[in-house]
Design a binder for these strands. Structure first.
Length: 372
RNA sequence: GGAGAGGUUCCCGAGUUGGCCAAAGGGGGCAGACUGUAAAUCUGCUGGUUAUACCUUCGAAGGUUCGAAUCCUUCUCUCUCCA
């Protein structure tokens, strides 16, 4: 069986349903994947992430390599048993750290020299080594090492980053071939090209031709405007093979997710839900509620009575407000549970809308409710 | 009763060779940000106004001085120690 079967195609947009077949179970798409960078979706038990319904989460090669390190991961038989997560795991390659830790790295043909953000020690990440680490982690979906760039760089610099990404992608495929049966899980390529249509087109064409199991669109949500995001998302998605699962990396807020789904994207991940939760931003259909605001001090109502999560079912807004004011760790924990529940429900609604060919109407209505 | 230390802007707390002090730094409060996680984080504001200036403010009153949170006098309150 292949990795992916496309399901119902929405009549009102490019949105589509689908199923991913991975080593730790099937995943219904479009899917939002919570991020668990360092081997933990921050502030919540993996058991509870599964209880909410999530079938797949992320881990990060760079962070897990530095801590706890491959020896530990090997010792425990990979991240699945180590972190008590028995569903699917997708690991980013460290490509995003090429962007986010740009001050601590140097790109050479062979790979990326990183200086650890923890202790300053130096490490070389090559396309091959990054795959090996992901194998040790036990990834169900490994990502190739790519060069993620910021907006407003020159065409020349963007082209160079893209070409580097392509050369590394080719080496990644070679490495997988060399490993043969020893390679477990799937491998995705990542389209780059910064904010230049020519480059995006060239990169999409390149990855369409390569035997990757899925194609990711990278280099978005790196500080560009929403208009740029929407433009390059749709532009790139339209040029990317529909045969394979398509994944936009680093997305997003509800409006960004709706755009991605509309463009026919099957997968996306984002720290926003968990990070905003930890910072007191709680998602509801009426928009983000800043629970720290004094307005909630005497609010006995639940955050969202329709939400099935424990934060909404057992506590008042006033209690959540108190937890955040008092800096109690239960606050961020409940907020994380809530936001992940919210995003899960949100994705269920999206899939239901696609199933009934009403995605466009759903999107319109949602944006009106959420952003008023 | 005696000896000593000290009262600073919402709180704690710098500042006492007088001007660069509306007064450091925390905290708290307010506002904003957060999008393949260097994030339970970060940024800005936080005496008043007819606002690139002026007014009020550093326990109280008075004094010295061109000028005082800073120096002098008296008063008052708090804390510690000795009786």
């Amino acid at each position: 069986m292949g990795i992916f079967t496309a399901g119902h195609q929405d009549a009102s947009s490019n949105a589509r349903l689908g199923t991913l077949y991975l080593d730790h179970g099937e995943v219904t798409t479009p899917v939002f994947m919570p991020v668990g960078t360092a081997g933990t979706v921050k502030g919540i038990l993996h058991k509870h992430v599964a209880e909410i319904g999530y079938q797949i989460i992320l881990g990060n090669t760079y962070h897990l390599y530095l801590r706890p390190g491959v020896e530990v991961l090997k010792h425990y038989g990979g991240l699945h048993p180590f972190s008590d997560w028995d569903r699917n795991l997708l690991t980013d390659s460290g490509g995003f750290q090429v962007f986010s830790l740009s001050g601590l790295r140097k790109i050479v043909e062979e790979g990326v020299h990183f200086q650890s953000h923890i202790d300053g020690s130096r490490h070389l990440f090559t396309p091959e080594k990054v795959l090996d680490i992901q194998q040790t982690i036990g990834s169900d979906i490994s990502m190739v090492l790519d060069v993620c760039t910021e907006p407003k760089i020159s065409f020349h610099a963007a082209k160079e980053a893209m070409e580097q990404t392509h050369r590394w992608a080719a080496r990644s495929l070679d490495h997988r071939a060399a490993l043969g049966e020893a390679f477990n899980g799937k491998l995705f390529g990542i389209v780059q090209g910064n904010f230049y249509e020519d480059l995006r087109a060239e990169s999409a064409a390149f990855f369409n031709e390569q035997p990757f199991d899925g194609i990711a669109i990278g280099g978005l949500s790196v500080g560009e405007t929403k208009e740029e995001y929407i433009h390059y998302l749709h532009y790139t998605a339209a040029l990317t093979s529909m045969e394979k699962p398509r994944y936009v990396m680093g997305i997003g807020s509800p409006d960004y997710i709706l755009e991605a789904v509309e463009a026919g994207i099957d997968m996306f991940d984002c720290v926003l839900a968990t990070r905003m939760g930890r910072n007191g931003g709680l998602f509801t259909d009426d928009g983000v509620v800043q629970i720290k605001k004094v307005a909630h001090k005497f609010d006995t109502e639940p955050l969202d009575p329709n939400c099935p999560c424990i934060a909404c079912q057992s506590y008042s807004r006033g209690y959540l407000h108190h937890l955040f004011r008092a800096n109690e760790m239960l606050g961020p924990m409940l907020a994380t549970i809530h936001n992940l529940t919210y995003f899960y429900t949100f994705m269920e609604e999206i899939r239901a809308a696609i199933a009934t060919d009403s995605f466009a109407a759903y999107k319109r209505g949602y944006l009106e409710r959420f952003y008023g």
